[in-house]
Structure formats: C-alpha cells, structure tokens
C-alpha cells in the first residue's frame, strides 16, 4: 500500500517558478576550465598528498596516529594473525564477528582456536552481534589524504558490522591505498559500475565525540578502537 508522494507537483512547480530569474554567481570558481569546477581540480586546493606510494603511505600512517587508529603493517597473514591473537588476549575476547571474503576467510583460518566466531548472515541476531568483542571486516579502499577506511555494505559484511562491536579490525592490502576522496569516488564508480552498494562509508578513526565541553572522548557509540592490519 502506498502513502503517496505528497505535494510533488506543487513543490516542483514552486521551485520552477522561483527559479525563473537566475541568481548572480558571487564567487565564481577561478580555475575551472569549462565553467564548472570539475572534481579533477579539487586536488589543487585541498591538503596535498604527494605522488608516490611511499608518500601516500607515510601520510596515511601519520594521520592514523593523529586519529588514534592503530595501524599495523604486516609482512603476511601469519603476522596479522599474531597481532590479532595479541589483541584478543589483551581484550579478553570471547567472540568475534566476521563476514565472508577472501582476506577474511584466510584470516579466519589462523585465528586463535579458543576464539568463537560469528559469521554474519542475513537475518542475524542483533543482540548476538552487539555482544561480540570485535568486528573484523575487509574494506574497499584506504584514503591517504584523510586517513580514512572506506567500507561499503558489500565489502564489509553489511551496514553495522564495522560499527556495532566495540573494536573494529580492518584487514586490507597496501594496493588499496588511494590518494584522496576524488580518487576514492572514481575508484568506487568503476568498481560498482553495475550498481552501488546501498551504503558507502568513510571511517576516519574510532568513534568519537566532543559534545561535553569539546573534550575528545573515543567510543561514543561506535567502536572505541579501530585497528588496521595492512598486508603488502
């Protein structure tokens, strides 16, 4: 049953009527070639990144530190497993939540045997996920300019696996690191040519708030910790 579309015609009519006179453009973009500022130009104005992969990585590492994300470059999956086992011990984890994926499946093989796993499937129990000690996901991209991890509902086990458990672990490859948001959007557009996932999210550090006296507190509603395991 439908609740209708409301005043669609009336509102569009008012908008069209209102726009009969174009407003003056008070601040024209200076360097736009074709009259419109294209996304390619954004790079000239935003914080610079540097061209080489090493420069990108260095910036990503520096921002991770500022953001209090925990970045661990790993030589191979075995090293990632060691780091994860350490985190599990430190946090006294009982259950971790995972989704399906090449990297995740390989990681699942080498998890500490005493750790229980919850593989997220459609119709999963929300309470059970909420009780997990950590959520482990893959991601689509890492963004050097902003220190962000880009996840989507397709790459990271849906909408909330990366945000409901108190510790979010991301497993990624160095090749997933892109320069900036412009490159990230272009890369997503190419990857999801046949239809975007219903959610794209740029995660920049663990959950945080400054609502009380503008003092930074981590873990407001989402993860208190964000760990990035970076494979070659």
């Amino acid at each position: 049953m439908s609740l209708g579309t409301g005043d669609r015609t009336a509102i569009l009519g008012r908008v069209k009527e209102a726009l009969r006179i174009e407003a003056p453009l008070k601040h024209p973009a200076e360097r736009s070639a074709g009259g419109e500022p294209t996304t390619a130009h954004f790079r000239e104005w935003l914080p610079p990144v540097g061209g080489s992969l090493d420069e990108r990585f260095e910036l990503f590492a520096r921002l991770s530190e500022t953001l209090k994300s925990e970045l661990h470059p790993c030589a191979d999956m075995a090293e990632a497993a060691v780091i994860l086992a350490g985190l599990a011990k430190e946090g006294n984890w009982k259950t971790v939540a995972l989704h399906r994926g090449d990297l995740i499946d390989a990681l699942a093989e080498v998890l500490p045997p005493e750790l229980e796993t919850m593989r997220l499937k459609p119709g999963y129990d929300k309470d059970q996920l909420e009780a997990c000690d950590a959520g482990i996901t893959e991601c689509d991209l890492l963004v050097a300019q902003t220190g962000s991890v880009c996840v989507t509902s397709k790459s990271a086990g849906g909408r909330v696996l990366s945000v409901l458990p108190p510790h979010h672990i991301v497993i990624a490859r160095r090749s997933q690191l892109v320069t900036d948001l412009t490159e990230a959007y272009a890369s997503l557009a190419a990857k999801y040519r046949d239809g975007y996932p219903s959610m794209i999210s740029f995660i920049t550090g663990p959950s945080r708030t400054g609502d009380i006296e503008r003092i930074l507190v981590l873990g407001a509603h989402g993860p208190k910790r964000l760990t990035i395991l970076l494979l070659p």
Binding site: Y124, K154, G158, S198, T204
Partner: peptide
C-alpha cells in the same frame, strides 16, 4: 569542527539491496 574529516561520512542509496546482509527493508 576543525577536523580534517569527520569520523563517519556515509552515503546511502536506498534500502538493503539484494545480496546484502542487513539494512532497512524500507527507506
């Protein structure tokens, strides 16, 4: 806020799509 990027910037294009694990049935 003076941050270089806010903690979560999320784009949503409708309800849960076929093949996705979760998300609202209606958006």
């Amino acid at each position: 806020t003076g941050q270089h990027l806010t903690g979560y910037n999320s784009m949503y294009g409708g309800p849960r799509q076929p093949g996705e694990t979760d998300g609202p049935e209606e958006f």
